[in-house]
Simulated scan of single mutants.
Amino acid sequence: MTAVLPPYYATPALPAPRRLTRTEDGERLHALLWPVRPGHRMISSAVLGGGLGERAWILNAQVTHGYRRTDPERHLASLAAQAGVRGPGVGLMTAADVSAYAHARDGGAEAFVTAGVDVRGWAARPGEGAAGAPDPGTINVVVAVPAALTDAALVNAVATATEAKVQALVESGLDCSGTPTDAVCVVAGSPAPGREAHAFAGPRSLWGARLARAVHRAVRDAVTDGGRDRRPPAVEGPVELPRETPPMGSAVRHETPAPGY
């Protein structure tokens, strides 16, 4: 039997993303943009807008392979401004083609995943040190639940999403727990009068279980060819963005990749 959600939970926390396109360094690149209704809180490991707080939008931008800018936060903020969004937001980066994202929904929880897995491995590897910047290969997970979550539950949701990601990778035959630059963003719904925020988001809690199943399915789709065919259409695009020019005097090399690309 399929559970019927109350009206508060019937509307997704995230709409389908807008797909944006731009030309940068001679390449045509895509980005996904989610405007978010007021009052939603997020927790993220993203290079722009990471941490915990209210955010107004999420941008997942494709960058060139061998990305060398040392100011990814400024770069993402510029792309967001060119897309016309205002206020604080979350910006992620990846060298993967974000137009090939995968989407899954479970009981009101939604997951959007872009995946580049050419550079992957296990989180704990003995004897590994900083050996220079690897080629970008990133799994970006954007997940939303329409229910309000406490601070602790938001942290719990990040752990749950990561566990589900690793499960999907292993079941897909990939010998890894992720890539060195994976990023995650969890969006929680606005509190409603008379409705307390959920205190748990582990994999056996109500919303954690739904979140885990959505992330698991979206990651599996994202790392297989079938995921591209099952993604929902982007709703407002493509929209041509102006070419973003690096600031005068900025460096062109860094030794370690920024999180999220």
Rank of each mutant, 00 (worst) to 15 (best):
E244A: 05
A153P: 10
A212Y: 11
T245M: 13
V184A: 06
A209M: 04
A164I: 03
D221N: 09
L154D: 11
L174W: 04
A199N: 03
A153W: 14
D225G: 08
C185T: 13
A199I: 00
P233Y: 09
V219E: 10
P180M: 02
E171T: 03
S250A: 15
G194Q: 07
P180H: 10
E244Y: 08
P247T: 00
V158H: 15
V252N: 08
S177L: 00
T245N: 09
P203K: 06
P242Q: 06
E163S: 06
T162G: 11
E196I: 00
G194P: 06
Q167L: 08
G208S: 05
G208H: 08
E244V: 12
L241Y: 07
L169M: 04
E163G: 08
D182R: 09
T160C: 04
A209L: 04
D151H: 06
A164V: 01
R253M: 15
A183T: 09
V166L: 00
L154C: 04
V170A: 14
R228K: 13
P180K: 10
H216Q: 12
A212M: 06
V219Q: 01
E240D: 15
H216C: 04
A197R: 05
L174D: 07
V184D: 07
V155Y: 13
E244T: 07
E240P: 06
V186N: 07
A234C: 15
A197Q: 08
A161L: 04
K165S: 10
E171L: 14
R253I: 08
A251P: 13
P191E: 07
T150H: 06
G227P: 11
C185P: 03
G202T: 01
T245F: 12
